[in-house]
């Protein structure tokens, strides 16, 4: 990860619906968060799971604030949002 980046992982899980990716991406763009990579799949037949790597170096928001913005963008849909610093995955999954 470059020194001038502050990378986060956004995870969205829940009931599949139209426009989830668009809404989340828009909320992130509006808050100056740059998406680096997206991975989206449907688990089983209906569980939507998206993991998204992004850089928040240009955003002034704290992680709880970013979580709230994304949650607000998909309000009313049955989805869970988690936003974490990438280091937690680095630590847990890499030796």
């Amino acid at each position: 990860m470059g020194k001038n980046k502050k990378c986060i992982v956004v995870t969205v899980i829940g009931k599949d619906d139209i426009g989830i990716v668009a809404k989340v991406a828009t909320a992130m763009a509006e808050n100056s968060i740059n998406i680096i990579d997206i991975n989206q799949k449907i688990l089983g037949d209906e569980i939507f799971a998206m993991t998204l790597l992004a850089d928040r170096v240009k955003s002034d928001l704290s992680l709880p604030e970013i979580t709230d913005k994304i949650k607000a963008s998909i309000k009313g849909m049955s989805l869970e949002v988690t936003v974490q610093d990438t280091e937690v995955f680095q630590y847990m999954h890499r030796v």
């Binding site: 995870t11 899980i13 680095q90 847990m92």
Partner: peptide
Amino acid sequence: MKFSSEEILETIGMIAE
């Protein structure tokens, strides 16, 4: 991506469930 979705979802599951 630097981490696979499986790895990310595993961590999320460990915490949430």
